[in-house]
Amino acid sequence: MNKLPKKVSAIIANMSPEERSEMIQRIVSLRKNNLHHSQQEFANYCGISQSYLSMLESGRKPLTQKAFKKIVEASGVSSIWLLYGITSDSFMEKSPKEEVNNFVNWFQSLPLDDQVKIAQSIKHASIFFQSHPIIGS
């Protein structure tokens, strides 16, 4: 089973509107493209109401910790993927130096505005995780 961060709601609350929107889009993509479910089928599958799912997908309701847990557990997706879009495939078996070089090259290829946003997100995540330990760590 996935180990869920203790306070998913706090992580989500600290996300930018764009990050929250991307997370919701991952849920929509999971529902439509991977599971091929209607809203009603996915809601039943996860144990949430269809009306809540509809409001969540349209941005009228926030993703709660309880709903997050139900979606992760029912679908089997990684909590890290749902929160940040990171998959285990993102971590290939390379040396740490190769990984760092790949990241630096990728990061430097981005527009400056995106580099600033990523740096700010890393800073916020670092501050958050220093004060909010993860279950199982």
Rank of each mutant, 00 (worst) to 15 (best):
M1I: 06
N2V: 15
N2E: 14
K3T: 15
K6P: 15
K6H: 08
V8Q: 05
S9W: 04
I11D: 06
I12W: 06
I12P: 03
A13G: 02
A13M: 01
R20A: 03
R20C: 07
S21D: 07
M23A: 01
M23Y: 07
I24R: 07
Q25H: 14
Q25V: 09
R26G: 03
I27W: 01
V28R: 12
K32Y: 09
N33S: 15
N33R: 10
N34Y: 14
N34E: 09
H37Y: 08
H37S: 00
Q39I: 03
Q39M: 07
Q40R: 10
Q40C: 04
Y45P: 00
C46N: 04
C46Q: 00
C46D: 01
S49G: 04
Q50K: 11
S54D: 03
S54Q: 04
M55T: 06
L56Q: 05
E57M: 03
S58Q: 12
T64C: 06
Q65Y: 03
K66N: 15
F68Q: 02
K69Q: 09
K70P: 05
K70G: 06
E73W: 02
S78H: 07
S79D: 05
I80T: 07
W81A: 00
Y84D: 01
Y84P: 02
G85R: 03
I86G: 03
I86A: 03
S88Y: 11
S88C: 05
D89H: 10
S90T: 10
S90D: 11
F91L: 09
M92L: 12
E93H: 15
E93C: 10
K94G: 03
S95M: 03
P96N: 08
P96H: 05
K97C: 06
E98C: 09
V100A: 11
N101S: 12
N102F: 10
W106E: 12
Q108H: 04
S109F: 10
P111D: 07
L112T: 14
D113S: 15
Q115D: 07
V116Q: 09
K117F: 07
A119S: 10
S121I: 04
S121T: 10
S121L: 03
K123V: 14
A125D: 12
A125Q: 06
A125H: 08
S126M: 11
I127R: 11
I127A: 13
Q130P: 11
Q130C: 13
S131M: 12
